[in-house]
Write a protein that binds this DNA or RNA. Sequence first.
DNA 1: CGTGTTTTTTACCATTTGGTAAAGCCACGA
DNA 2: TCGTGGCTTTACCAAATGGTAAAAAACACG
Lengths: 207, 207
Amino acid sequence: MPAPVEKKPSRIQIRNRKKIMDAALDVFSQHGFRGATLDQIAEAAGMSKPNLIYYFDGKEAIHVALLNALMTEWLDPLRELDAEGDPLEEILGYVRRKMEMSRQFPRESRLFAIEIIQGAPRMLPHLKSDLKPLFDEKCALIAGWMEAGKLASQDPQQLIMSIWALTQHFADFDTQVRVLVPDEAAGWEAANAHVETTFKAILTPQG
Amino acid sequence: MPAPVEKKPSRIQIRNRKKIMDAALDVFSQHGFRGATLDQIAEAAGMSKPNLIYYFDGKEAIHVALLNALMTEWLDPLRELDAEGDPLEEILGYVRRKMEMSRQFPRESRLFAIEIIQGAPRMLPHLKSDLKPLFDEKCALIAGWMEAGKLASQDPQQLIMSIWALTQHFADFDTQVRVLVPDEAAGWEAANAHVETTFKAILTPQG
DNA sequence: CGTGTTTTTTACCATTTGGTAAAGCCACGA
DNA sequence: TCGTGGCTTTACCAAATGGTAAAAAACACG
């Protein structure tokens, strides 16, 4: 039998799917899956609830679509870590890209954070199939750099997780940061500088 | 007029309130406020839903009680930062206490994280009235240590937030950590060592 | 235009959820 | 043993929520 033909989506479909995903990102990243309601998403997207269901199979389908899209983009900065580049500069570049993502896409960061905190009910397979291999590969790369004396020796796994912890903190805990460091612009500048200094300090060989 | 007399709670009340708080911590830290249901909490606490309401005024009251209790204990490690002690040892001690809390009380850490990620709707006042003053006080203390040359100079605000980010990461993102570093015991050991090394590196004066 | 298709709306529905009312249970002192 | 007051359960309820059916409206296109 012939493979089922997927019709190519119309302009309206593309536009509305995007509107829904954006609205859903707002709502899910603020309330988590269970805490979000279709009515909230519908209102944020500027359309009626049954209209959401016309474009997506249901609440869960929207959430899954968001997480899938996220998982792809989210790992890009790590993928770019280049075995051919200068080790220290490569890692600092990675740190900078992650900081930039936290500033530009805080909602995505929070969506991811909430999903993980809640036990990754819908993302555990992705973590195992996408994140883990990439993580292992880059750990090996970094370990190689350390053995070659290009970087100070340390646990590469802990290093990468430290980078995540520090860079994502500023998106995820933004509310707290704003209370403690009211000047937003100055905060980001200081954060960038501090994070970069930190990793330079622990990575520069021959301490 | 006489002050309203608060009857002292019976043994049963103390026991049941504790059971409820513990159950609620489970549920709220996994689903957030909106995502949690009274039925879940009731079942986890081993009692009927109306019985919950007998002990607490409602869902929100339970959540608030949890957050209040948390806010008190959560800041203790920072309060212990002692102006009279050895600066480097004081801060490393703080880091160790935070790591220990993450290991022993991951649910509390997640409850806090979810509340902040969701915009701290019920905790913003606490942040401003409790956390902010303590934060400012300890920043000043650390700044003093730096001026005296006891610690490497850097932004004390960023330093404290870095400590939070790194230490809480292991509780909040536990699910992810477990996927990437399956050996739990080894993971904690490595994490402790890495975090401690990191802060020693950036704090030791005369780099 | 007119017609077939896509998109949107209106009116629902069953279930879940936070919460209440009121009756029943149980320990304990008189 | 009886009553009294704290504790618990059963039986509900109104609102919210995820989702459906079907008609109406908007659109594409010959």
